[in-house]
């Protein structure tokens, strides 16, 4: 029981942090997020596939770089570790953008009339609690939303401006 309580507390703390993070992203990169959101809604299958192959490729690349760095020494090790850390950081940031866009889409469906900050918070809460569900959430919902969100974020860089 104590373990469950601790997990629940951790989940709430993580959700609050995520909500804050997504609010900041919404405030600073509103246009980029709106674009990702629009693409996620319009071409989800394409976004999912694009996110999947990119995350897979960069994850394997990072693992390979770290693996090579483990056996290297001196400057070579630094030169291998540095790009691995940079790529991992960039992918994490992109995933953050993707999930923020997904949270916006979810909130837009359930609370269309709410103020924008409330929508972000509610979308994050729904996504975080949904993703925390054992097995289905961990291995289906979170990867699906992550891949599709990431793909939508990447697609946003290659598409023309949205039509007004």
């Amino acid at each position: 029981m104590n373990e469950i309580g601790r997990m629940f507390f951790l989940l709430i703390v993580l959700t609050v942090s995520l909500a804050g993070y997504f609010l900041v992203l919404n405030a600073l990169f509103a246009h980029r997020l709106a674009k990702s959101q629009h693409i996620f809604e319009q071409s989800r299958a394409r976004s999912f596939l694009l996110g999947l192959i990119n995350l897979l490729f960069f994850a394997v690349l990072v693992v390979a770089l770290f693996s090579m760095a483990e056996r290297a020494s001196g400057a070579v090790k630094t030169l291998l570790t540095l790009p691995a850390l940079l790529i991992a950081g960039a992918m994490t940031a992109s995933l953050g953008f993707g999930w923020a866009a997904v949270a916006n889409v979810i909130a837009g469906r359930f609370f269309p009339q709410s103020p924008s900050w409330m929508k972000v918070v509610m979308g994050t809460v729904i996504l975080a609690f949904g993703g925390a569900l054992p097995f289905a959430g961990w291995f289906l919902l979170l990867p699906y939303t992550g891949f599709a969100g990431l793909g939508a974020f990447i697609l946003g860089f290659f598409q023309k401006e949205l039509k007004e």
Binding site: L49, L50, I53, N54, F57, L61, L155
Partner: peptide
């Protein structure tokens, strides 16, 4: 993964 990445990105983008 690199081959899949090149082909996949080429097709999807």
């Amino acid at each position: 993964c690199s081959i899949a990445w090149f082909i996949g990105n080429g097709m999807l983008l």
